Amino acid sequence: MIKRYGERVDPAMHYTPRPGAYVILQRGRDLLLTVQDGDRLEHPEIQLPGGGIDAGEQILPALHREVMEETGWRMDKPRRIGVYKRFVFMPDYDMWAEKICTIYWSRPTLCLGSPLEGNHTAVWVPINDAPALLSNDGDAAFVASLL
């Protein structure tokens, strides 16, 4: 059974399945996270880099693409460490989603510049501080499991 985080599930609501891949990028005792600040967000969110897998896209290429878009970094070969589900409203898509979040661990290898997505900022955070800073409980639980 996959652990669930996020909003309570409303049996009367339709949730669109949204698979995604996310990564814990560790360099020493620091993690590379992304801060997303968009027009449709109430406040900035600190997140693991990653995101949705587009139709026809494979999971690892999607993860590498998302990391580049959100951080400007390349990473080593990611290692899958688990999966969880979140039932959330996605304002950018104006829909309720059942996010199936596959979590990886890797090391950042090369910074090629600023994030490609203008509403993201890459930040280094001490690993011990990251669980309390992350905006969703699923990401926080996976990072906490490394401590």
Rank of each mutant, 00 (worst) to 15 (best):
Q36C: 13
L32H: 04
K85M: 11
A130F: 06
H14D: 10
V143Q: 01
P78T: 01
R4K: 09
D30L: 10
L133H: 07
L63W: 00
Y84A: 00
E70S: 08
V83I: 15
K3M: 13
H64F: 06
E42F: 10
S145A: 14
L60V: 14
P11R: 03
T102N: 09
Q58P: 02
C101Y: 03
L133C: 10
L116Q: 14
E70Q: 15
A144C: 01
T121F: 08
L48R: 01
S135V: 09
R65Q: 04
P108W: 03
D94F: 11
D129W: 13
P126L: 06
G138H: 05
D76L: 03
R79P: 01
E69S: 07
M95F: 08
N119D: 15
A12L: 14
Y22K: 03
G28Y: 00
D76M: 04
E70H: 09
Q58S: 12
G138L: 05
F142Y: 15
V123P: 08
R65G: 01
T102A: 10
K85C: 10
R86Q: 14
G28D: 09
S135D: 12
P61L: 08
R8P: 13
T16V: 12
Y84V: 04
L33I: 10
G50D: 02
E117T: 15
P78D: 03
G51T: 06
L31K: 03
W105G: 04
S114L: 14
K3C: 10
P11V: 05
H120Y: 14
E117L: 15
D129F: 11
S106Y: 08
E70T: 13
G52D: 05
G28Q: 06
K85I: 05
D37C: 09
D30H: 12
T121V: 11
M13C: 12
Q26N: 04
D129I: 06
